[in-house]
Structure formats: C-alpha cells, structure tokens
Write a protein that binds this DNA or RNA. Sequence first.
DNA 1: CACCCCGATGTTATGTTATAATATCACCGG
DNA 2: CCGGTGATATTATAACATAACATCGGGGTG
Lengths: 169, 169
Amino acid sequence: MLCYNITGMRTQDTNAFQSHDHAACSSDALAEAERLCTQKGARLTPVRRRTLEILLEGHRALGAYEVLERLSAEGYGHQPPVAYRALDFLVDQGLVHRIRRLNAFAACVHPGEAHAPVFLICRSCDAVAEAPGQLIRAAAEEAAHALGFEIERLNVEALGLCPTCKGAP
Amino acid sequence: MLCYNITGMRTQDTNAFQSHDHAACSSDALAEAERLCTQKGARLTPVRRRTLEILLEGHRALGAYEVLERLSAEGYGHQPPVAYRALDFLVDQGLVHRIRRLNAFAACVHPGEAHAPVFLICRSCDAVAEAPGQLIRAAAEEAAHALGFEIERLNVEALGLCPTCKGAP
DNA sequence: CACCCCGATGTTATGTTATAATATCACCGG
DNA sequence: CCGGTGATATTATAACATAACATCGGGGTG
C-alpha cells in the first residue's frame, strides 16, 4: 500500500504529531486491517471492527474501560471481557498495540508492514506516535546476544514531549 | 566503583544470567545505594533500605504486593502504600527499575553508573537482566528527533529466553 | 432435516495492581 | 516548647484484568 494524503506525504510516513488527513489515515488503516484479516482467515467481527474504529479515531491510547464504555453505549456487551477480548484479538493480529506505560491500547497506523515500533508518548497531551525502530531492534538483538539471550518480543516506549506541547507547555 | 567477584569479572559486567558471587553483587549494590543517597541528601530509611534488600535477594522482579507481604511480615505497615512509597522512592533514586511488562520491580545492580538499561526478561524463569543500552538510547533519540519529539524517559523491555532456559525449555 | 461442533459473544464474580485522602509520628531548628 | 517538615501508617476505593460458565448462531455431517 502506498497512498497520499492532502499534504502529499506517504501515509506510512505520517504520524500522530503531524497534521494530516486523518479521515484518510484511519480509513486506510481499517481497509488494510480488513484485507489482512481476510488473508489470514481471521474474522473481523462487528465488535472487533468497531473497537478498531474507536481506537483509530485519534492517535491516542485508550484504556480498556474507555473502549468498553463506548462499546456498551453502542449496544455491545457491558462487561470488561467484551473489551479485553476484542483488544486481545486486535493485538494478536498486529492491528493494535498495547502501551504498557499507560495501561492502554492504540491502533496501529500501518499494520502488516514489517515494523518494530517505538512508541513516543507525549506526557502532556497523551498522543502516541509510532517511530520506526529497526535500528533499535538490531541494537537490542546485539546487546541480548552478547548475554546469550534470545529476544522474542521487544517493547520500546519513550515518554516525553511532542513537538506541539514542547512549544506550548 | 570497580570491584571483582570470585570469577574475576567486574561487577558491572555481571548479570542475572551468569553465575556469580551474588552475596557480593547485592552487598555492593546496597553499599553503592547508600553512598548515592548520602551524596544526594536522600534518606535511605529502614523501610526503603529493607525494600531494596528484598529486591536484591535475587535477579527477579517482584510485584508490589509481594514486597508488601515481606515488609509487613517483618513488622512494617500492612497496606499497599507502604510498599508503593518505598518502591517509588527507590525508582526515583535510580536504585530500582520498574518492569512494566510484569507489573513489577527489580533492583538495579549497578546504580549510579550512567546507563540506559535494556531489560531482558526470561519468560520461562522470570529472571530479569539489564543489558547496556547506550546504542539503543542513541537510536531512539534519533528516531524521535526526526519527528520533533523530545525523549525524557525511555523504557526498553525484551521478552524471551535466557541462556539457561534456552538450553532446557 | 436434525444434530453437533465450534467460535464468538455475553454475564457473573473475583482477582490484581495502584492511588487518593487523611491521620500520625519523629525529628530538627527556632 | 512549639511549629514545620518529611516519613510512615491506615482506610477506602479506583483502575485494570481474568476465570469460569452460559448462550447463541452458522456450517458441516449423518
């Protein structure tokens, strides 16, 4: 997939900290999610799809209970497992990332593409951007192998100030 | 500080995955912690010190409630804030790290030394080692600056198999 | 068609982690 | 001796997460 938004920027290069055509950004992600699920034989059911849409509304991480509130207001189940199951599914499919620092979940903006995401979390406005982390992944592999450790999953989260909030703190 | 254990290895090079003189390893860390607190005018009070000792007993991360259980059995307070306060203090002082993936805390083995720790968490035996992460830190800074993001705190956690468990899973 | 299987959804109940708010205590300087 | 300060303790509750079990519907098989 390679597409352009109104600024002429490639979608995969957009991020939470740049102004961008968000409607396109999120509908692209959704379409891509559908494609991936079909391809893998995974079922993007209504709750799951709606959960993804909710997360795609903004480049923010939402807690499971925030998601649940939204879902239950729209007629889905009212109990925590409803949200957790949908979120777990989406995380398994690589469509959503879990942000541990926030105990929260954020939609992946370009699922399917090989990426080792680094999460940049603004402590002021709570926006979450994904930066490319291939270099970091490589550096981590190297450090780990020096100790004989085999990395299976890597999680990198940075807390700080986004460009906007840096200007106006 | 530069010291040697029975294998002739420098303490700062030991890690959770190597057999080492653990008594020395932890008493060194404790002594260093004391030195750092004195230097900064921070008070390593009995609860705080005992909390650190408990975490230093093994290269494992303990949950706040595990720590609390130990503390309360030894006559300290019985309520969660007792453990959380001590742990928060130790984290602030850089004597303990928080392992978010495990919702747990692990003692820092070589506090004071400039280090950008990468945590290697064995999913089989729960041991937690710190690997040097300067390169990773640098790579992250670079990726972040490309988006105009200012990193204040960086957390890198890898889940996988330690050398021992890799051999015998 | 009847049946069963299975995956998805729903609910109840509870477990686990973390913090707000408040009170007390010990020490130190004035 | 008094008041301020930082540490500690307690109560209560918020916030996050999962176990266990019930139900429902679609798809294949006898």
